[in-house]
Amino acid sequence: MSLQFLADGLFAGALIGLGAVGLTLTYSILRFSNFTHGDFISWGAYLALGTVGALTGWIGPAARFMPFSFGWPLIVGGLLAMALTGLLALLLDAALFKPLRRTGHGIVMVIASFGASLALRAMLEFLFTSEPAYFSRAIQIAIPVGLGIRVTPDQAAMMGLALVVVIAMHLLLTRTHIGRSMRAVSENPALARVVGIDVAAVIRATWLIGGALACVSGIMLGLTVQIRPQMGFDLLLPLFAAAILGGIGSVWGAIIGGLIVGVAEAGAVQLIGSEYRSAVAFVLLIAMLLVRPRGLFGVREG
C-alpha cells in the first residue's frame, strides 16, 4: 500500500485545521457554531482570485517563483484578500450577529448563520456561476520525496504556510494583549468584562482573525484543487469534526483535529473508495461526541 494517502491526508488536514482554528475561536468566544465559516473560505478564495487578477491587470503578469505555480501577486493579493475576508466577517457581524447578540438566545444566531451561509454561497454563484475557477492552469509536476510519496511544490509551500500561520496564531494568543484578552473572554465573558477587558474589541479581533484564516485555507484549496462557490460549505462538516475532535477553543487541538480528519478521509478513500469520503468526518464527529465530547484538548464546560 502506497503511503501517498498519508501525504495527501496531511495536506487536506492542514487546510481543514486552519479553517477549524477560526471556527473554534468564534465558537469559544462568541458561543455559537457559525455555519458561515465555510463560506468565508469560499469568499476568501474568490477575493484572492479578484485581488490577484487586479494586481496582474494593473502591473502586468509577474514571473512565477520557480518551481511554484505562483509569483508575488498571489502573496500580496493573498494578504489583501485575508484582510478583506476579515472585513467581510466584521460586516456580517455588524449587520446580523451583533443585533442578535443583544436579544440573547445563542441558537437563534446559529439559524441566522445558516441563512447567511446560504445567501453568501448563492451570492458567489450569482457573481461567478458554479463553474470552477483556477489561480493558475499551470500543471505541476509532483516531486518524489521518498517512501513512494510525491508532493507538488505548491503543496509543500502551502504546508509551510500553514505551519507559519499556526505558530503566529499561537504567539498571538499567548504573547499579545489582545490574544490574552481573547482567551479570557473565551473562558469567562462576565469575569473578563468585570476586569475591564474590551469585549467589543475581542469580538472584532475574533472575526478578523477567523476570516483571515478562512481566507488562507481557501487559497490553499484554490491553489491545489480548484475554486468553486460550494468549496467552503463542503468543508464545513470536516471543520466541525476537527474543532470537536481537538476540543472547542483549542488552537492546537483544531490543527491536530484537522490533521486527523484529513488523514482519516484520505485513508477511507484508499480503503473503500472516494464515494463515502464526506461521511468520514461525520463518523469521527459522532464517535468523539459519544466517547469524549470535550475533545482531545478541550476543557470540561462548567
Partner: peptide, 20 residues
C-alpha cells in the same frame, strides 16, 4: 450535550444521508 452539538450532528447526518 450543548445545543450546538445537535446542530452540527444533524447537519452531518443530512450530508451523510445525501452521500448514501
Amino acid at each position: 450535550l450543548r445545543a450546538d452539538y445537535l446542530a452540527m450532528t444533524t447537519f452531518g447526518i443530512a450530508v451523510t444521508i445525501q452521500v448514501i
